[in-house]
Design a binder for these strands. Structure first.
Lengths: 183, 183
DNA sequence: TGACTCATGTAAGGCGTTACATGATTTT
DNA sequence: AAAATCATGTAACGCCTTACATGAGTCA
């Protein structure tokens, strides 16, 4: 069995930007990485424990706001760089919308229209979220991390806009299918 | 625990287009649905057994080329329509490339360039595959299923082209990051 | 005080892949 | 006859989410 897990990359990466608690880690991942990555508590806490045992992460103590934060160690930074350099793994695709449209003849044209309209709403919603994230990033002071964050936001925006134009094109195609059927 | 599995939809759907063996089922899913769906033998065979027990599928016997094919039953077609009408579920996103670019500051600009160039190659490769699939679909006779197949192919094409323009934009952005760093 | 958020974990179990075993059929 | 492909299945195991348990701090 090949070791594919990449939760450690997400965790080490987030902690390389800023020390935080496991709870905040999940919040951060849901928020900014949410459109291309996901983690749950059931993954985060065991991973943090392992990273701590390996000396890649430690609990912060000092300072006035020393309430339970995890900090990446020097060895952790090296480890992160190593892991980032390994080939990228992506999840097997599983797009329920396209699966349904593929068998659209059985679902029916009206059902397909609903699916497409939902996809359009989701894309519009996403574009708003990207706009918010962009603002948040730019409202923080300048940082060497920000240009890279923005590259991933831009990826989301390109994809969302592609979805929107595909939806319009496909809705027109559905009209054509329906009128062909009437003839 | 919510029942999320959708392998049955893919299997029933494929069999609604044409009866085939479990082996051919996997080949078909890998080929045409490959860019948005995936199934392995370990999923397909138990699902076929279950669908057969439920009377949604049966083994074909008659005919000269009656070599082990599964056929969808009338009840199976009803079941398929029901399942297609349920809300679409998609996998949690897990894009290893974007994860790495997000932490690009730690990976380094050159590593990011490699990732982007890989993404571009993959997109070009995909566009070729979509072209092949399109031809295959159109070379078969006319069918009520084909317009829906082509809608999903078009989705892949839009996404791939979006990826390509995002890559170009981001490579330019990396140049900018590097020259900022030099100053 | 009661509700809400923050915080850390664990247990159960579904989902899905990989690897293996087995044999028939087809091709070279 | 050997090699490749077609075909069906199972076992083991990793990954990941959901749900639960527990408690501290904050705020109305």
């Amino acid at each position: 069995m090949v070791f594919k897990q990449q939760t450690d990359v997400a965790v080490l990466g987030a902690l390389s930007v800023e020390p935080m608690s496991g709870y905040a880690l999940r919040h951060a991942i849901r928020g900014v990485l949410g459109h291309f990555w996901s983690e749950s508590f059931g993954q985060i806490y065991p991973t943090l424990a392992q990273l701590r045992a390996d000396g890649f992460v430690e609990r912060a103590r000092e300072g006035p706001d020393s309430k339970s934060k995890f900090t990446i160690t020097a060895r952790g930074l090296v480890r992160l760089q190593t892991r980032l350099s390994e080939p990228a793994q992506s999840a097997q695709p599983r797009n329920g919308t396209l699966l349904r449209l593929f068998f659209g003849r059985r679902l029916g044209v009206d059902g397909c229209r609903l699916l497409l309209e939902d996809a359009r709403s989701a894309a519009v919603q996403q574009l708003h979220e990207f706009d918010t994230i962009r603002r948040e990033i730019q409202s923080e002071g300048p940082s060497d991390d920000h240009p890279f964050f923005l590259i991933t936001v831009s990826a989301g925006e390109h994809t969302a806009r592609a979805t929107m134009s595909w939806v319009e094109e496909s809705l027109r195609e559905l009209d054509r299918i329906e009128s062909d059927h009437d003839r």
